[in-house]
Structure formats: structure tokens, C-alpha cells
Design a protein around this nucleic acid. Structure first.
Ligand SMILES: [Mn+2]
Ligand SMILES: [Mn+2]
Length: 541
DNA sequence: GTTGGGATTG
DNA sequence: GAATGTGTGTCTCAATCCCAACTT
DNA sequence: TGACACACATTCAA
């Protein structure tokens, strides 16, 4: 790694933002950028070093950065630029965070092994002389204006969960990204108010845990604070709705059902209507609950919601002797029970080893089917679309989880499906396995795949089955990429079977049932295998 | 004296 | 035995250091 | 730092 790596990375980030988003920056942020630019290199380095760490307060004696040289001078220039404070006023609690338990014992003149940290802190708080002794000969540096860098990060990445480590991981080869072209003409932020709303959202999210611990009033106050995203800002809509759903769910736990209900009423995103239905039913408003079920069935936002409404509606109607349209027809999958000696390994691997007797069996869960789709449509996932790629560290296009991902790429997908029908699948999978290996892709989990199971699967699974599986996945990439069976079994006698393993006490989950309904519709061979452990007690008896 | 959870680093 | 809610573990980037708990 | 699947407890109905 070059000596300047973190300086270069930081500069790349802030210069991109300054170039493309200067008009969105307020005076403070513009000043922040100018003041940073006016620093000499050692001061810039020190600032970035401090900015990259989790805490904002440091004892200078604990900082060891050979490449910076004299920290004293760098720190003073940063102070002159207003980017750090030296020896700031601190309350006792904050000050003590900077020192170890041993430091505090020494200042108090106590022997080691004398109490926990909390007790020592309590003790030293009463002794001004000991506190003064702690701080004597120490220069304390507080890094300032972190929030301004946070704004730059948000503008660059479009989120706050990525940071400068993304550059390092890429440069070390630990994360590889598809070399897509960045669409600098259509960047995600268009206005200051949009940016402010995003920042506001993150501020709210940071408050959530505290509010949840405080209870109903704090949760309701937080909900009031949530920003109102612009109609075309899908990213922020998704985030605020998820946070509102979390708030409402927590309100339910606090028994504040009416308050939760009124939040759910404002949200369509799942599982808002499901929660709403449950609350209405619990409150005894059966007809409203049933009406909502009907509404969901007519226009479901996802398969899970549809399945819920069909089952819950039927049950609720039956219980209350109310009329109900439609019969849920749960088809039980073929189920067998096998008894195996318990092993150190997981029940899935143990079962796979068992089936290995009759052919070849792999523990793949979601990785195989979604992975093959990912390899089959690799170029479409990363196709240049307006606004899809706006920084170099994306694992997927910006709209990957939106329903319109498919709509926007429909012509490409139709063409690809035609190619698949003409036998393109084996070639696409082999080529992309070869050419793209290790590159991050939202559908491909390289670690859980190997070329053997891929080749076997391509060989043994008929094309029509693949097309049916792909179709269901593409209907809702976000929600249909889980729930696939644990094992794929290729019997020596030919064909294949998808097997969901269930250990003692485990039962089919709803997403697994939904996949099995698809398997049924497409005639795909599948089963549930219940594993029981050979009891050593029984064996001896 | 060990260990387990972190923060930091590249 | 279903339905429902909640808790847990496993992926982790890997090597190193620090620190505060303890016969884990 | 979530997503995902599983483990476990409680409740309720037949
Ligand atoms: Mn599984
Ligand atoms: Mn299973």
C-alpha cells in the first residue's frame, strides 16, 4: 500500500464531492473543504487519521503516526484551521474515558486489583488532586467538524454505512467491483433540501435505540421527527418507512397499539398492512381486518403479504363465522423421516453426507439458484442505466431492489431469456465463472459456490426448470432470494431433487412454503427430510 | 495468566 | 400442532494491539 | 452490520 494511501483516498472522495456537488454544499461545508485544502500535508494526514477513528478525543501521547512527523506542529495548525481543539474543557466522565483502569489506579495511589473500573471512576471523581494528576503532562486533542465530513461521505456513497475503508479493501484486493462506468450526469442528490432530509433521517435513526429504551412517548416524538421524502426519492422513502415500521413495531411491544396502528396506516410497504390487520383483529374489529385482507389479496406488495392475507383472512373469518372468498389450499410437500447418528457438524451437512451414498449432494441453500441467475444475467445487472452507478464501490445498481429494476431492463431480459431458450445458459455460466470470479454481485455468493456443483446443476436441471426458477426470482429479487431448500441432490440414477432438511423441533418457514408452491407449479422435484438423531440411550436399552 | 471483545490498520 | 414472537449464530478481510473482565 | 435460517417459549384451538 503506498505511503499516501489514506490521504489519496480522502482527497479522491472530497474532490469528487467538491467537483460534482459544490452547489449543494452550504457555507460551512465549503469553508471546511477550503480549510482542509489550505493545510500542509502533515496536518492533513493527522486530521484524516483522527477522522477515521471511532472516538473523537485523543491523548496525544497515545498517537503514534510515524509518517506524520511532529504531531505537535500538525495539531497546532489544525487548531488554527478550526479542525481540532487542543486541551478542551471536558466533563469528568468524558475525561476519564481517555484513561485506562491502571491509569486511574496510579493517580489514586491504589494497589492494582482494587475494584472495577466503575468503582475507580466513582472514587477518583471525588478527588480533584488525583484528577489533575491524571491530566498533567497530557495534551488532549478533540477532532472537530466530523459532521462536515459525514456530509461529504453521504454525497459520495449515497449512504453512511460505507467509509474510507472501501478504498482500502478494494486496493488490497479484498473486495472487487465490476468496472462499470459511473454516470456523473445523474447523481443521486439534486437539491439541498433532499440532502438535508437524508441527513435528518440518519439523525433520527441514531436516536432510535435510545427512544426504544425510553418508551412510548420518545418513540412517538421520534416518529413525528421523520423527514417527508420527495416523491421521486425512492432511497429515502425506503429508509424512512423502514424506520417508521421499526418504531411502530416497538410501540406494539410497549402495548401502544393505537399509536402503532396510526403509523401503520400511513405506510403501504410490507409488513405495514399485515401488522395493521393483526392489530385490528386483536382489537376486535373483525370486519375491518377482513376488508384489509381482501385489499391485500387484490393488490399485494409481495408474496409474503399475499400469503398472510389469504391464511389469516380465512382463519379469522372462520373463527368469527363470517363469509370468506377463496380457499387457501396448502399442499403438503413430500416428507420423509430419516434417523442418523448425531455428528459435530450441522444437521444439513450430516444429511448431505447421508445422501452422498446414493449420488452427489451439496448444501447450497440460496446460493445455487440465485448464483446461476446472477451468472446468467451478469451483464444486465451491471448494464449502464441512467443513475444506476454513481460511485466505484457499489455491489449493485442503485435500483436493484426496486420493482422497476426489471421494468427498466425488460428488453435486455427478454433478449437474454430468448438466448437461454436457445441453449446459452451453460456458456454464460462457465464464462462468467471464469471471467468474473470474486467480483461482488448481489446475486452471486462466490464463497458458497464451486464449479463442480454448478456444472452438475447446469447438466442435470432441465432448461425449463431453470427458466421457471429465474422467473420467480425476477418477480421480486428482494424478497424471493431466500427460502430455497438446504440441499441439492443428484442421484446416481439421474435427475435431481431439492431437499429441505429439518432437524428436531424445526419446521418449514413461510418463505420455504412459498418456494415449494412454485416447485409444485413447475413440476420441480423437491421434498422435506426430517432428521431424527439416533439416541444412544435407546441404542443401549 | 487467560480470554474475549473492541478498535485500528492496510 | 399451528401461530406468533423473540433470541441466537453465522457469515465476517485478516493481523495486531489494547484493555477489562474473569479460574469465564 | 444486516440478512438469513434456525432454536425456543408461549398461547390457543381442536
Ligand atoms: Mn437452511
Ligand atoms: Mn433446513
Amino acid at each position: 500500500m503506498p505511503d499516501n494511501y489514506y490521504l489519496d483516498n480522502f482527497n479522491t472522495l472530497v474532490e469528487f464531492v467538491a467537483e460534482h456537488y459544490w452547489q449543494l454544499l452550504n457555507n460551512e461545508e465549503q469553508s471546511f473543504y477550503r480549510r482542509y485544502q489550505s493545510l500542509d500535508t502533515p496536518a492533513q494526514r493527522l486530521y484524516i487519521r483522527l477522522l477515521s477513528r471511532r472516538k473523537s478525543l485523543f491523548r496525544q501521547s497515545k498517537l503514534h503516526y510515524e509518517e506524520i512527523g511532529h504531531l505537535d506542529q500538525a495539531a497546532i495548525r489544525l487548531e488554527q484551521a478550526g479542525l481540532v481543539a487542543i486541551d478542551p474543557q471536558l466533563d469528568i466522565e468524558t475525561l476519564l474515558q481517555l484513561f485506562t483502569r491502571t491509569d486511574i489506579q496510579h493517580a489514586l495511589g491504589v494497589k492494582s486489583q482494587s475494584g472495577r473500573r466503575a468503582q475507580l471512576q466513582q472514587a477518583i471523581s471525588q478527588h480533584p488532586q488525583a484528577l489533575a494528576k491524571l491530566r498533567r503532562h497530557e495534551r488532549i486533542i478533540a477532532v472537530l467538524e466530523q459532521q462536515n465530513f459525514t456530509v461529504f461521505r453521504l454525497l459520495f456513497f449515497g449512504n453512511l454505512y460505507q467509509d474510507l475503508t472501501a478504498f482500502v479493501l478494494r486496493d488490497l484486493g479484498l473486495q472487487r467491483y465490476e468496472p462499470y462506468r459511473i454516470d456523473t450526469d445523474t447523481l443521486p442528490f439534486r437539491s439541498r433540501s433532499q440532502l438535508d432530509k437524508h441527513l435528518h433521517y440518519y439523525a433520527c435513526r441514531e436516536l432510535f435505540d435510545t427512544a426504544a429504551a425510553q418508551g412510548t412517548t420518545a418513540l412517538l416524538a421520534l416518529n413525528e421527527q421523520l423527514p417527508e421524502p420527495a416523491a421521486d426519492d425512492h432511497a429515502l422513502q425506503r429508509r424512512t418507512e423502514k424506520l417508521a415500521l421499526a418504531i411502530a413495531r416497538q410501540l406494539e411491544r410497549e402495548q401502544a397499539n393505537d399509536e402503532a396502528l396510526s403509523i401503520y396506516r400511513q405506510i403501504v410497504r410490507a409488513p405495514a398492512r399485515e401488522r395493521l390487520t393483526r392489530l385490528l383483529a386483536k382489537a376486535g374489529d373483525t370486519s375491518a381486518a377482513l376488508a384489509l385482507c381482501t385489499q391485500i389479496i387484490e393488490a399485494p406488495t409481495c408474496s409474503e403479504e399475499f400469503q398472510f392475507a389469504a391464511q389469516f383472512g380465512q382463519r379469522l373469518a372462520k373463527k368469527n363465522k363470517m363469509p370468506w372468498q377463496g380457499q387457501a389450499t396448502p399442499t403438503a410437500p413430500a416428507t420423509t423421516t430419516i434417523t442418523l447418528p448425531q455428528t459435530e457438524r450441522s444437521v444439513e451437512l450430516t444429511a448431505a453426507a447421508h445422501f452422498q451414498q446414493w449420488g452427489q449432494c451439496y448444501y447450497v441453500e440460496n446460493a445455487l439458484i440465485t448464483g446461476v441467475l446472477g451468472l446468467a444475467i451478469w451483464d444486465i445487472v451491471f448494464a449502464a442505466m441512467q443513475g444506476a452507478f454513481y460511485h466505484p464501490f457499489q455491489n449493485s445498481p442503485a435500483d436493484f431492489n426496486d420493482p422497476d429494476f426489471r421494468v427498466a431492463r425488460q428488453h435486455l431480459l427478454l433478449k437474454r431469456f430468448a438466448e437461454l431458450e436457445n441453449g446459452a445458459l451453460p456458456g454464460l455460466v462457465a464464462d462468467n465463472w471464469q471471467n468474473k470470479f470474486g467480483i461482488t454481485n448481489p446475486l452471486v455468493s462466490w464463497r458458497h459456490l464451486n464449479i463442480e456443483v454448478l456444472e452438475l446443476a447446469i447438466d442435470k436441471i432441465p432448461l425449463n426448470d431453470w427458466l421457471a426458477l429465474f422467473e420467480y426470482l425476477l418477480q421480486d429479487l428482494r424478497n424471493h432470494r431466500n427460502g430455497l431448500p438446504d440441499l441439492i441432490f443428484f442421484p446416481a440414477s439421474g435427475g435431481y431433487q431439492l431437499i429441505e432438511v429439518k432437524g428436531p423441533g424445526d419446521r418449514l418457514q413461510n418463505n420455504q412454503r412459498r418456494w415449494m408452491a412454485q416447485f409444485n407449479a413447475s413440476g420441480i422435484n423437491h421434498s422435506v427430510v426430517n432428521v431424527e438423531w439416533e439416541s444412544t440411550v435407546t441404542a443401549h436399552a
